[in-house]
Design a protein around this nucleic acid. Structure first.
Lengths: 186, 186
DNA sequence: GTCGGTGCAAAGGTTTTGCAATAAA
DNA sequence: TTTATTGCAAAACCTTTGCACCGAC
């Protein structure tokens, strides 16, 4: 569905309207219990920018704020849509560049699941985790299992390697046939 | 086949010379002990083509044979280089299309590690496995660990999901400082 | 006034597709 | 002859980059 975009000319010309896949709704806020300490992250951004002589612009502020309010694995497109609702003139490239900066500041993690879109999540504490992605309802759930990490290290060692980082993604379907999140029938 | 050009011009014009990364040498043959039953796979291809009314062309034969002789996780570029050494007129698109066919015939598995290239491996029996990729020497080692699979299922179930497929990649470095495969110093 | 940031367009890099020519059945 | 396949070029697709103008400091 194209046409609805509030600013046609600001995307790469060849790109037809991108449809961010059903994975992960772009909701900006969520009210779960455990809020990561956004203030700490905000301060981390500030420190990084000062340290590197980066300037504080209105666009950056908006993009960073939109991202910090997010509790989802958000795509560039979703983030762009969010900030454009406040200022339609913000461009793609700025969002890309700002997210690169946030990754460099260790405030965001970049994830690439198998749908071709980069996604960003808050880098909360030292929490390492992996992901479960539902193929039906698009939910992305984080998990961490020390026993798996342990087995990984053993496997690597057995072959003469040490694990530096890993990628572990479980592509799933809902067990509950009536899952309210389900988007398409199977 | 048209076009007399023996080689240049057969790639997409914008593409500068592609350098397949250091991962996985394109060697066509290898003499390890356990040869997968290539004859079974060949028959599977034949059956698939008959069943779908696909025609047997010289190009397809060459590409399929080159792939079946492979014991590595081969990229399109590597495969193209192999078949071009026999017939320089074979084009990119044909290799892509043939590999898609082999995946459909369940003779090849497509893998995408995090370097942007699709890789193909023989689909031997029902063997499921995951991969360990060395960041230094480029080796790709297959592993399978039932205890991990089990934990995965438990994790998914705990969240109300069932695993359909998964991706588990260990990016490693060699433990042996003098690893003969090492390509670059750390 | 400097120099980094922004927005746009164009380019990168891998994969896919449209099309006219070609060849398998 | 009919219809699938080929090779080429161009397009698709997400991301990055070049550049002129703009704005933070």
């Amino acid at each position: 569905m194209q046409g609805g975009s509030s600013d046609p000319g600001s995307r790469p010309p060849s790109a037809t309207e991108r449809s961010t896949p059903n994975w992960s709704a772009p909701t900006a806020a969520l009210g779960s219990g455990c809020e990561p300490d956004v203030e700490v992250l905000r301060e981390q951004v500030r420190a990084h920018m000062t340290e590197h002589g980066l300037r504080s612009t209105e666009q950056r502020r908006q993009i960073v704020e939109a991202f910090l309010m997010t509790r989802e694995h958000i795509t560039i497109d979703q983030l762009l849509a969010l900030v454009r609702s406040e200022d339609p003139r913000i461009g793609y490239a700025t969002v890309y560049r700002t997210m690169k900066m946030l990754v460099a500041a260790r405030v965001a993690h970049e994830r690439r699941f198998s749908d071709g879109f980069a996604r960003y999540e808050l880098a909360v504490g030292g929490t390492h985790h992996d992901h479960l992605i539902c193929l039906e309802c698009g939910r992305i759930v984080e998990f961490s299992e020390p026993r798996i990490e342990e087995l990984q290290d053993q496997i690597a060692a057995k072959h003469g390697f040490a694990v530096r980082y890993h990628k572990h993604e479980l592509y799933c379907t809902c067990l509950d046939v009536d899952c309210p999140h389900r988007l398409r029938a199977k």
